[in-house]
């Protein structure tokens, strides 16, 4: 039935047309400028730029830390969303209000505040320093900054779905004798999975490009804690627009592919869930 009712609802032309126009004007045309600029390099120059060991090291660092941060956020973001929606406890509303702060706080301020705290002399860094664990100026510090930046993505995509989630499924599952754990695992989690994947993907994507907060906490040591966006900045400082856009183009293509795959997974999860 779903398939046949394809055009039952009105407004496809209007909404799709507007969306596509807006998308093209604001995203596609501007981003194509990146590729066109990068295309002013010859193939040789292009590969030399992006296969430079330092650039490769920065790609690896950027991807691994973003992935780590997105994973942490997926787990804890889900937990936070669940706790905020399902449980009552003092200070809940306050915490709920804080979730969006990472967006509102300029990334540079976030970077400075986190560095102040997680450096060896900071409140939190000082707790770990005696154990020989350095947080700021290491990949761990970068991951912490990215967790901060990405947290709202997961919480705020899972939260509305969780709020609108009908209790009747859980009810049915419980009535059929399933344990609470089983209900959560088999009934609730699949419902949340598409939103969770979206949140994960967004947090991950955001981490790839993040610059402002990370430069403060990363230490920017070549081969060790130098992130890809910093290298873009480095190229620009030398008026090398083409080189900068080359690195940006690679980052763009990689994140596009990743988002594409995650979106595919998400849609599949959605379909499975709706058929269930």
């Amino acid at each position: 039935m779903r398939n046949t009712s394809k055009r039952l609802l009105p407004g496809f032309g209007l909404t799709m047309g507007f969306s596509l126009l807006y998308l093209s004007l604001l995203v596609l045309i501007p981003l194509s400028a990146v590729f066109l600029k990068a295309a002013t390099l010859s193939w040789d120059q292009f590969w030399q730029t992006v296969l430079n060991p330092r650039v490769l090291a920065s790609f690896r660092l950027t991807f691994l830390t973003s992935l780590g941060a997105a994973a942490v956020n997926a787990v804890f973001g889900l937990l936070v969303a669940w706790v905020l929606v399902r449980y009552r406890f003092p200070g809940r509303r306050f915490l709920d209000g804080l979730i969006d702060i990472p967006f509102a706080l300029p990334t540079a301020v976030a970077g400075i505040a986190l560095t102040t705290l997680y450096a060896d002399s900071g409140w939190i860094g000082a707790l770990f320093a005696p154990l020989g664990i350095k947080l700021a100026y290491t990949p761990i510090g970068i991951t912490i900054a990215l967790v901060f930046i990405g947290l709202p993505f997961v919480v705020r995509t899972v939260q509305p779905v969780l709020q609108e989630l009908d209790h009747s499924f859980e009810e049915a599952s419980a009535c059929l004798g399933a344990s609470r754990t089983r209900t959560l695992w088999k009934v609730v989690l699949p419902e949340l999975l598409p939103a969770l994947l979206t949140g994960f993907a967004l947090a991950f994507a955001r981490g790839l490009g993040e610059y402002g907060s990370v430069v403060f906490i990363s230490g920017n040591m070549p081969m060790k804690t130098e992130i890809a966006p910093l290298l873009i900045m480095t190229k620009l400082e030398q008026f090398d627009y083409a080189g900068a856009t080359a690195i940006a183009a690679v980052l763009l293509v990689l994140s596009f592919l990743l988002l594409f795959v995650i979106n595919g997974l998400q849609r599949r999860a959605n379909r499975v869930q709706r058929q269930a």
Partner: peptide, 27 residues
């Protein structure tokens, strides 16, 4: 092309802010 559309919509998140500014300079 729904998936493509969705992915393109997400793309600005992944774009480094430096580049997000730079594209408008390039234009």
């Amino acid at each position: 092309g729904k998936q493509l559309f969705l992915t393109l919509t997400d793309l600005p998140f992944a774009v480094s802010p430096v580049i997000a500014g730079l594209v408008f300079i390039l234009l």
